[in-house]
C-alpha cells in the first residue's frame, strides 16, 4: 500500500510537470499564470512531503552511526583474529621447539599436526581480506548517502528537528551481551582493580 502511494506520488509529479508545460504553451496569459502557480504549489507540497518522509527515516544516522559502527566492528574482528592467530602460532613454535629435541614417531606425528595448524591459520589472512572488501563497500555506501544528504540537507535538517522524536538508542546500548570494541573496553585487570577499590 505504501509503495503504491509512493508510486502514485511520482506519477503525480510527472503529471503536474506536463500540465505546467502545456499551460505555458497556452494563449490566455493571466489564466495560465494562476494555473501554473497552483500546479507549482501542488508540486512543492509533494516534494516537501517526500523530504519529510526521507527525513523521518533519519538517513544521517547511516553516516553518523551505523556505518562507522559497522566498520569499527569489522576492524575489531580483523584485529582479534590476528591476535588469536599469533597466539596459536606462538604455541605451535613452543611445541615444535620441544619436538625438535625428541626423536620418536610421536614427535614426527606432532610436527605434522603442528604444520596443519600453521596452514589453517591462513584463515586470518583470507577473512581479513574479505572483511576489508566489505569495509570498502560500506565506505562507498557512506559516500553515496553523504552525497544524497548534501542535496537534501537543509530541508532534512529542519524536518528532522521538527519530528521531535527521541534519539534512537543503538542496539548495543540496549544489550550488554556483545563484545565491546577494544578502545571502548577496559581489561579484566582494570575491572579487578576497580572492584578492589570498593
Amino acid at each position: 500500500m505504501e509503495n503504491a502511494e509512493k508510486s502514485y506520488g511520482r506519477d503525480q509529479v510527472i503529471q503536474i510537470i506536463n500540465s505546467v508545460v502545456s499551460k505555458v504553451e497556452s494563449t490566455d496569459k493571466q489564466e495560465t499564470a494562476n494555473s501554473i502557480l497552483s500546479d507549482l504549489n501542488a508540486l512543492k507540497a509533494i516534494i516537501d512531503e517526500a523530504r519529510t518522509e526521507i527525513g523521518s527515516t533519519r538517513p544521517k544516522d547511516i553516516n553518523d552511526k551505523h556505518i562507522p559502527t559497522a566498520t569499527d566492528e569489522l576492524d575489531a574482528v580483523v584485529e582479534a583474529t590476528a591476535e588469536a592467530s599469533g597466539t596459536i602460532m606462538d604455541s605451535c613454535d613452543v611445541i615444535q621447539e620441544q619436538t625438535s629435541k625428541m626423536d620418536s614417531e610421536a614427535a614426527r606425528a606432532i610436527d605434522e599436526a603442528v604444520i596443519k595448524i600453521f596452514e589453517a591459520c591462513s584463515f586470518q589472512d583470507i577473512t581479513g581480506q574479505r572483511i576489508n572488501k566489505v569495509v570498502t563497500t560500506l565506505k562507498t555506501i557512506d559516500e553515496k548517502v553523504s552525497a544524497m544528504l548534501e542535496v537534501l540537507s537543509e530541508s532534512l535538517h529542519v524536518k528532522h528537528t521538527e519530528t521531535g522524536e527521541e534519539e534512537e538508542i543503538p542496539p548495543e546500548k540496549k544489550l550488554l551481551n556483545g563484545p565491546q570494541l577494544p578502545e571502548n573496553a577496559i581489561t579484566q585487570s582494570d575491572i579487578d582493580k576497580l572492584l578492589e577499590s570498593f
Binding site: G86, M89, C92, F118, E119, S122, D125, G128
Partner: peptide, 17 residues
C-alpha cells in the same frame, strides 16, 4: 613478502619445515 604478519609466519614456518 606479505602485508599480513600471520601469512609471513606461516610461510616462514613451512619453509623451515
Amino acid at each position: 613478502v606479505d602485508d599480513y604478519n600471520t601469512m609471513l609466519r606461516i610461510i616462514k614456518n613451512l619453509l623451515k619445515q
